[in-house]
């Protein structure tokens, strides 16, 4: 934890190539929130040959459903939800160009393989640190599925949100370390 490593969107292959599982980095730029219900709809649309409501090629999806904003704020607390529930949908989205995902917890082998195949990355935000994370959000735009409430797709502009590289482009996985491999 010496100096802060800052990465900005869009995440290029060069930036992703420099990330290693276990690194703590600070992310600035645009991400799209989508969780269970939004994923279900996105994949249903894609499979039916329809155009998804936003072009996720090269983009980052943040598995999050924020609290409502208090008056005078733009968003409520917005921490990560458990990523594993999106495992069934992610390989398809990654193969179609999704570059990175932010969430918490481990991913399936199929997701790890899709990440490696496409030079992607999976970032873990700190589960439960949602109040702090809301302070990293500079702008919020509703993009799609407004009827889903907290589960709607929103574009967030982040400033220095702390995330840990959980699965890097080579498939190294912070959650599947041999004991103490990452920390010692």
């Amino acid at each position: 934890m010496t100096e802060k490593k800052i990465i900005r969107t869009p995440l290029t292959d060069k930036v992703i190539g420099g990330l290693k599982a276990g690194d703590l980095v600070y992310l600035s730029g645009r991400v799209y929130t989508a969780r269970d219900a939004a994923h279900q709809r996105l994949v249903t649309m894609i499979k039916a040959g329809q155009r998804p409501p936003f072009d996720f090629a090269g983009q980052i999806v943040y598995y999050a459903g924020p609290c409502p904003a208090k008056p005078g704020q733009i968003i409520g607390p917005v921490g990560p939800t458990t990523s594993g529930r999106m495992d069934a949908f992610s390989p398809l989205l990654i193969d179609l160009g999704l570059k990175a995902m932010i969430g918490k917890g481990s991913r399936s082998q199929a997701v790890v393989e899709a990440i490696v195949r496409n030079q992607g990355v999976y970032l873990a935000a700190i589960g439960g640190a949602a109040a702090l994370m809301s302070q990293c959000v500079r702008q919020v735009e509703l993009i799609a599925f407004e009827d889903l409430g907290t589960e709607a797709i929103r574009r967030l502009t982040l400033e220095m949100m702390p995330v840990v590289v959980a699965i890097d482009g080579q498939g190294r996985d912070v959650y599947r370390r041999t004991p103490c491999q990452v920390r010692r």
């Binding site: 934890m1 276990g22 703590l24 999050a64 459903g65 924020p66 609290c67 208090k70 704020q73 409520g76 607390p77 917005v78 921490g79 939800t81 700190i126 589960g127 439960g128 640190a129 949602a130 109040a131 702090l132 809301s134 302070q135 907290t150 702390p162 840990v164 990452v182 920390r183």
Partner: peptide, 28 residues
């Protein structure tokens, strides 16, 4: 663990922000 300490410090700081602003500690 350095990363573990960082996470715990973040959780304590998060609780303070939540209490100061009376916003939820976690979005869930």
């Amino acid at each position: 663990s350095p990363l573990g300490r960082e996470v715990l410090a973040t959780l304590l700081a998060n609780a303070e922000v939540a209490a100061d602003r009376m916003i939820p500690i976690c979005q869930d």
